[in-house]
């Protein structure tokens, strides 16, 4: 009788497992949906590999001197629970690369605090300017995003009336989005596409 009960409990838990697994599969398809625009920390592996590697330990957030790293609960699906994310408009990454140093699993790679290495390994997304909203493009010289950028003339340059042009090398840290004085912001990071 004891054994039968044991097996029954086992069977039930397998069914429960299958159900959860199915629902996680469904929720993973929704990664980076427009309603939830988030970035992974700088140096993070492509989404799939990142989730494989991350053990949800929270050290990246604890290392971040800018407190821009936050953690998901269930809003991005079960697979993303307790994984780090950055909402650039709330607080953007300052590219200090400390989170990669502290990450034990390599889910966030170690990146040297040097231009070459950062451009090589960091891909959080890319900034896009909405010219309808941008003050400079509407004739009122602004240039705040250019001055906020940690990589001026590498990731972004300004032209006539300080109109911003995002360059190929933009890695999507989000400092421009954070600093944009328009509401809603005229420059936004489009997160990198998930693998």
């Amino acid at each position: 009788m004891k054994r039968r009960r044991f097996l029954k409990a086992g069977g039930l838990s397998v069914v429960a497992l299958a159900a959860t697994a199915l629902s996680t599969g469904a929720s993973r398809a929704a990664v980076n949906q427009p309603s939830l625009r988030y970035l992974r920390p700088p140096g993070a592996l492509p989404e799939e590999d990142f989730l494989n590697r991350c053990i949800h330990c929270g050290q990246c957030g604890e290392a971040c001197p800018n407190r821009c790293i936050n953690y998901f609960e269930l809003e991005n699906g079960l697979a993303s629970i307790d994984t780090p994310y950055i909402i650039p408009r709330e607080k953007a990454c300052i590219l200090c690369m400390k989170c990669g140093d502290v990450c034990p699993t390599g889910a966030i790679q170690k990146v040297e605090y040097e231009l070459e290495d950062i451009l090589d390994k960091v891909d959080m997304g890319r900034a896009v300017v909405d010219k309808q909203l941008c003050l400079s493009w509407q004739g009122k010289s602004c240039g705040v995003c250019y001055r906020a950028c940690k990589l001026p003339d590498v990731a972004i340059r300004v032209g006539y009336m300080e109109q911003p042009h995002v360059l190929e090398n933009c890695i999507g840290c989000g400092l421009c989005e954070r600093s944009c004085i328009q509401i809603p912001q005229a420059i936004k990071i489009l997160p990198r596409k998930s693998a």
């Binding site: 497992l17 697994a21 949800h56 330990c57 697979a79």
Partner: peptide
């Protein structure tokens, strides 16, 4: 098994010491 299926370390979610620290 659930971690393997979902591709995310989900055991961390039901392991009290990990939860308490976090």
């Amino acid at each position: 098994l659930l971690s393997a299926i979902s591709g995310s370390v989900l055991v961390a979610g039901v392991y009290p010491p990990a939860i308490v620290g976090r």
